[in-house]
Write a protein that binds this DNA or RNA. Structure first.
Lengths: 207, 207
DNA sequence: ACGGTTGTGTACTGAACAGTCAAAAACCTA
DNA sequence: TAGGTTTTTGACTGTTCAGTACACAACCGT
């Protein structure tokens, strides 16, 4: 009945995310988004209701991608839960699960959590962005905590440890590598940080 | 001989830093800085060469303040080095040493490392900002590493551990609390994270 | 008290900005 | 192939922006 849209929504949002990542929210003009995505101004406003709308939808897409990573990597039987956590940490500190599809490979500097980046820039005055960022942190933290509980059930982690405490700590380390990883940490150092973080998990007492 | 300037340079830079913290670099107009500092446009350009100059000088001032904190808290005799590290971690995760004087007390959300915040927003396209942020991280990392070495000399930390590795890890955790601390971590949780981080330091083997 | 020197206030400029709008194009159904 | 519907395009508007320029005010040594 009507003219079909000539662009792929996800592709546009990926391009916009890439742009926001490199120039920030306030540093990106609507024309920049237009150039990065190939959409004209009109289409952009019709489809996403302007710059802020693009940001929210891009963050929502990021959240959807982000959620899948930890959930798929960490979910599973109690056996092997500790090792799944190990592997996840190793990948997370290198920014792998967060930015795939959107960034050129091996761009650790730009791979910092998109939600954290936007929240730091505009979260103070933008409750929507703040809420989305919280959700991003929450989904990772929840998946990690669940994996810790599985490892506890399997006798690989001290059952007296608070799994939520551990999840908070691990999330903090992962986010820390996002911030500092871009400024001097070599990949080897990141791996070393992940291994140290993994080693700090309290093992059950051998009595 | 000439008219003296009617403002205190440091006071102005503190006000500008507060503004940049809350609205970001690109989200802050020269008029915003003018309003926040009380300086007119003319004085602002004469004294700091515009918006970018204000940022660089504000970051330099922040760096100077930041440097003093860890250095004073961590330097000292080998005895007590471990405990100094302990106390520093507890304070650092709460953002205390970074934002004093500039922020209203107990504003953990806004207390994230100023350098990290600016670097994340504009560091990708601003080498000066990137360099200043690196220096900020470096001075903390160096002070922590030196304190670790002191604790090693005193027999409180495993002498086989790489002090630089440990310093990188601790720095990562501190920066992680900056990012995530604003979004849901309670003060008690931050303390718990600091304690866990402290507990992971490898103690010497009791043989 | 006066003049040289420096800080301060403000008006101005050209560019960039976010958002709107209407005309034209593409598509599907009938 | 014609009509109705939606997308696309690009021009347009009023605003805000960074940076400049210039007139005025404050100070101090003489």
């Amino acid at each position: 009945m009507a003219r079909p849209r000539s662009f792929d929504r996800d592709h546009v949002l990926h391009a916009a995310e890439r742009q926001f990542r490199t120039t920030g929210y306030n540093g990106t003009s609507v024309d920049d988004i237009s150039a990065a995505t190939g959409l004209g101004r009109g289409s952009l406003y019709a489809a996403f209701d302007g710059k802020h709308g693009v940001l929210l939808e891009a963050m929502a897409g990021y959240f959807a991608r982000l959620s899948q990573g930890p959930r798929k990597m960490l979910a599973g039987p109690d056996e092997g839960a500790l090792e799944r956590l190990h592997q996840y940490l190793l990948r997370a500190v290198h920014g792998v699960p967060l930015a795939a599809d959107v960034l050129p490979a091996s761009d650790r500097a730009g791979a910092a959590c998109f939600a954290a980046k936007m929240a730091l820039e505009v979260g103070a005055s933008d409750p929507e962005v703040k809420r989305l960022a919280k959700e991003c942190f929450s989904v990772v933290r929840t998946a990690v905590a669940e994996c810790v509980r599985a490892a506890q059930r399997n006798g690989d982690i001290d059952p007296d440890a608070d799994p939520d405490d551990l999840a908070y700590l691990l999330l903090t380390i992962i986010r820390g590598t996002d911030v500092v990883g871009a400024y001097g940490h070599s990949p080897a150092r990141l791996t070393s940080i992940a291994e140290s973080a993994f080693a700090l998990l309290p093992r059950p007492h051998h009595t």
